[in-house]
Design a protein around this nucleic acid. Sequence first.
RNA 1: GUGGGUGUAGCUCAAGGGCAGAGCGCCGGACUGUGGCUCCGGAAGUUGCGGGUUCGAAUCCCGUCAUCCACCCCA
Length: 456
Amino acid sequence: MPSTQPARGMRDFLPADLRRRAFVIDVIARVYQRYGFEPLETPAVENIETLLGKYGEEGNQLIFKILKRGEHAASGQADLALRYDLTVPLARVVAEHRATLPKFFKRYQIQPVWRADRPARGRFREFYQCDVDAIGSTSLMVEAELCAAASEALTTLGFADFSIRLNHRAVLDGMLSAAGVVAGQHGDALVALDKLDKIGRDGVLKEFEARGLAPDSGERLLDLLARIAEAQASSLADPNGAALHLLAEFVGTHEAGLRGLAELRDLLALAPATAAAAHLRIDPSLARGLSYYTGAIVEIAVPDLAGSLGGGGRYDGLVGMFLEKGAQIPACGFSLGLERIIVVMTERGMFPASLAGSSADVMVTVWNADARAASLALAHDLRAAGLRVDVYPEADKLGKQMKYAASRDIPVAAILGDDEVATGMVAVKDLRSGAQVTVPRADVAAHVRGVVALPA
RNA sequence: GUGGGUGUAGCUCAAGGGCAGAGCGCCGGACUGUGGCUCCGGAAGUUGCGGGUUCGAAUCCCGUCAUCCACCCCA
């Protein structure tokens, strides 16, 4: 007998799970829509060349590959793959439809992605991302609106204590160059630096050594980060300004670094007018793993989760990888991780109590075989009146039917027995209070509404 | 990918070489027109799977799969 468990890292979503997921997705989608983003869906499967080389070395290995079919099946070669994120498929779509899409294309996309990763707490092999991206503009207005949209989505869900860590790839370049890290080793240095909050100062220095980086470069970078953290803590009125000041000192005349700092200043100047205002925090140690980012990068953190709730950034070169040589279309996007949000909301008890409710407002009982049609007819009328109605499917003993309704948390039973049919009445029982009244058949819907406190 | 924990009834868990158990749930009855409370009875397990040690294995050993935790990485 085959196992009844879903494949490793995959999950079945039972009704109670799905209600919570649908609630979160609905909140996020509505906020995205309010910011003028349009819906998009793309296939689960992409040609493998579409995905390869877009995510960096780690990413390439985590792509779920689909072997060639037919006579090539034995070769182990893959020509298709499950999508790894929603950003690369978007870049492909933008390149494919660039002639007809609006000049500034703003889309949101809430779909599953797949990674051949080892499952862990809050981490799965199939999981949903909630992406918003704006294509076609290099303006920092775009970053500001994306941060605002993500902030508003989280705030609407009930999060108050999140921070949006903010950095810039060009600033990182400037920092590393100023610290004496040669261009070819920037990636290694970033990976090490990114772990500062987990492994501490000494851990980062060891990483530098392990990766063949000059120890004094590491020292200088760590000193800078420590000075910035200190300055942020002591300038509560303007921690971001203090951080930018120190970064500017350190970066000196590095051209890209100066450009990045100017962009961060620009973004911070725009943010006070948005929902992201209180949440943005310059964090010079933020690097992010994906290789396609070119400008501002952000990540959302909450205190009680090791990983992030979401992240994003500017990727002005990605769409160009699907275009004729030299062509480029600027883009910037943000992704909220549905699973992470649900984990934290569940732990904190943030879901509204109404989500735990039942699947039906009322259950119609079935007296005996002859009464089956009468019960269906009653259910039909109640449904026409807008109620959610379950009909017990068999003519079991009434006690069993009541027990079933109670076990499903259905608040009302409509009992249609011989006596009721003969007199044109229906017995309506409130299963929560035990109160039962017999009302004329025509009044059942109104009465049930009253019992479950629905508006007429 | 690394290290560790755990797999026994539908669920939560006992039994640590000598007859596989409890609570909850489920089914039937006390109550043939009414759930929750009570009482009585019942069904239910190849102890994850495969091998080994032993007179005898849920228990010890090896392997394997699943799952959880901490790392690595990420959403």
